[in-house]
Design a protein around this nucleic acid. Sequence first.
DNA 1: ATTCAATGCAATATATATTTTACATTGATT
DNA 2: AATCAATGTAAAATATATATTGCATTGAAT
Lengths: 73, 73
Amino acid sequence: MCNQVKKSRIESGMTQLQLAEKTGVTRQTISLIEKGKYNPTLNLCLAICYAVNKSLDELFWIDRRKNDEKDQR
Amino acid sequence: MCNQVKKSRIESGMTQLQLAEKTGVTRQTISLIEKGKYNPTLNLCLAICYAVNKSLDELFWIDRRKNDEKDQR
DNA sequence: ATTCAATGCAATATATATTTTACATTGATT
DNA sequence: AATCAATGTAAAATATATATTGCATTGAAT
């Protein structure tokens, strides 16, 4: 519902663990990012992009949040 | 040399302080991001995009790092 | 030559992203 | 029905993004 990481990872035929290893983080980190419960770091976003061969916009762009939505920065 | 934040901020006619206020962070945070010394959070990247009306790719994309470059995640 | 806005930068404090370890569930395979 | 890979999740620990405060410099304007 938030980002396209899970979709792209599956399209790339990778498991969470494989993507985690390829990007140098933990499986939980990948899991939580896919669940939209994490606010990942730019460098990690880029690493994921490289791993699944997508751009930042393709994986992480979110149309301008409505101004009444709470954001956690 | 790393991202296009400073360039886009200036084109938008904003000062570091104005961009900081608009994105809900501190001036130092903006300063360090522009200097490429910070690894900002995705939500902050998005807030900056919205503030200067650019996409993630336009502001933050970095072509796949050479594999001998150190990365700090 | 002063003033002031904009910026760079440093030290310490705080919030939060990420790790570590561990356990539970589901679905496929045997 | 037992095993195993893939995933979800939780608590505590660690690393690091961000805030806070404060001072220095530069350049434009007066």
